[in-house]
Every structure is written in C-alpha cells, then in structure tokens.
Simulated scan of single mutants.
Amino acid sequence: MFERNRVITIANQKGGVGKTTTAINLATALAAIGERVLIIDLDPQGNASTGLGIDRRDRKLSSYDLLMGYNSIAETALETAVPNLHIVPSTMDLLGFEMEISQASDRAFKLRSALSGDDAFVYSYILLDCPPSFNLLTMNAMAAAHSILVPLQCEFFALEGLSQLLETVDQVRRSINPSLDIQGIVLTMFDARNNLAQQVVNDVRTHLGEKVYHTLIPRNVRVSEAPSYGKPAILYDLKCAGSQAYLQLASEVIQRERRRKAA
C-alpha cells in the first residue's frame, strides 16, 4: 500500500450518524491548518458534493468516471470554496456501478487502482465519504484506505451498529486489505443534557478505549444549517460549538498520525 499520503474511509452502515458532515468539516479543518485534502464522494446521493457547494450542473465528471477508470483524479477533482480542499463529486451514475462491474475480478480494487497514480500524492489526506450501507462502493473504499474513521451517534443502538461495522472491517482485513486500521471512533450528535448520551459515551470508551477520539461533536443547529448554504459549518459559522469541535478533531487526527509515524 502507498504511504505518501493518508487515505481515510469515513464509514458507518447506519445512516444519519453525521458521516458526511464529519467528512466535510474534518476535511475543511485539515485544509485550514495547511494540509492539502481531497474528498472523494462515493455516495450516489452526493451530499458531500452539495454540502461543499458543487452545483449538479458542474459535475461533468464524477467519482463514477474515476472508479470506472475513464478519468484520473486530476481530471475529476474540482476546487471548492475552501483553499487546499478539492472534491471528486458524486452523481447518480454511481447507482449503476455495482451492476456494471459485479463480474469483474478486480471489482473491489477499482478505487485502489485510481489512487495509485501520481495525481493522488499531491494530497496529504484523501477522505472517502461512503454510502450508508456495505456495498461494492464501501468495499472499494475499504480496500483503498489505510484506515477507517467511524462516526457514531450518541444513541441507544450505537454499540450494536458499531459491533457489526467492526466485524465488517475484520472481514475486509482477512479478504482484501490486511493493513486496514481503525483510525478512530468519533462520537457525534452529543447532547450534554441527555443522560443516555453520556451513558453511550461511557460505554463506547469502556469497550474501545484509545480508539475513541476525545473530541465530542455536539448536536448543533448551525452545523445542520450549513449544508443548505453549500458551506462547511467551519465557513458558515466558525465560532459555533460544532465548528470548534471539528477543528479539535482535526488536531487529534494529526496528532495520532504523528504518533503513528513516530512508532
């Protein structure tokens, strides 16, 4: 596996956990502190693309073209309003991807192949935003990534969904990507007034220890509003609690990377 950059899959089989919000705002925070960052939007709904203000009419080429090998990263990546942050946008063409390549022997490695070119290495971080299911798109992301970052909503069924995801990661390690690591678990939509949310935090930390980031992403109206303006929360309202939390998370991600490289 290539190590001139860091490829992180942001995934959870459960929807509505803040996965795309985390991808957009973590990428923005990393870019804000000088890292060159690329998001690859692998969800046919294209929420990461919309949340970064990429109009559907401007998505002439997309992650579908990248996965199919028709076009390179350099050809498909678009600039965003955030300096140092590019995105390979998504279109509904992705819906046909699974059917088109289901019989191909390299069907799980299309993205890994696309990320092996020199144009991937101009970025220090590549974040892969996955659909909320385990399908061939998510499998491609896990096969191409160095690690997986899991957003986990602070709710009753969180641990149940997490155990399923960790089993999936183990299966991927055994079959297609032995070096896939857990980058970390980020707890999202935390409400300090809710006793159950605090219990979930305690339970997850007890079970997974250092794998859980210290930063808690709060439930925050400004973060929820930002995508409708085509902006990351950090651009929409830098001072809101959610934006500040994502800046903290970016700092933690970089600190973990430094420790990993030093080990």
Rank of each mutant, 00 (worst) to 15 (best):
H86P: 00
S62I: 05
A241W: 04
T21P: 00
L216M: 10
A143T: 13
M1S: 14
K60L: 12
Y64R: 08
R4N: 10
E210V: 04
I182Y: 04
K19C: 08
L208W: 10
E210T: 07
S147K: 06
K231W: 00
L128G: 04
V200G: 00
E225P: 04
K110D: 03
I24S: 02
S62C: 09
M142W: 11
E252F: 07
L196Y: 01
D203I: 12
L162C: 03
A241I: 09
L187R: 10
E98W: 07
A197N: 15
C154H: 06
S228F: 10
A77H: 09
A233C: 14
G46F: 03
V204R: 03
D118N: 15
S124L: 05
I8C: 08
A29H: 11
L78K: 12
L38K: 09
G184D: 02
R36H: 13
L52T: 15
L149I: 11
A81C: 05
R173L: 02
L247P: 00
G51S: 07
S163Q: 14
T28K: 12
D129H: 05
I39A: 06
T215K: 05
N195D: 13
I24R: 03
S90W: 01
Y229M: 10
N71M: 09
L115R: 08
H214C: 04
N202Y: 08
G230P: 00
L187H: 04
C130P: 03
R173A: 03
P132K: 12
K19Q: 08
V7L: 10
G16V: 03
Q164C: 05
L149Y: 02
R173E: 00
D170N: 14
T28M: 05
N140G: 07
E100G: 09
A145P: 08
E35I: 00
L42A: 07
R56P: 00
Y64T: 04
A23L: 01
Y236L: 06
A143E: 06
I10P: 02
P218H: 12
A23E: 04
G53W: 01
Q13I: 12
V82H: 03
D58G: 15
P151G: 06
N135F: 04
Q183V: 01
I87N: 03
D41C: 05
S224P: 01
G46L: 10
Q153L: 07
G34L: 14
K110Q: 15
N195P: 11
R260W: 09
Q171I: 15
D118I: 06
Q248D: 12
P83K: 11
V88D: 08
K239G: 13
T91K: 07
A11T: 13
N135H: 08
R260M: 12
S102K: 13
G34R: 13
A141Y: 05
L85V: 06
L208F: 13
V17R: 04
P131E: 10
A108F: 11
I217C: 05
A32M: 15
R256S: 07
Y229N: 01
P178C: 06
P178H: 11
L42V: 13
R193D: 07
E252K: 10
I126V: 15
D237T: 06
F109M: 08
A197R: 04
S228A: 14
E210C: 01
Q164G: 06
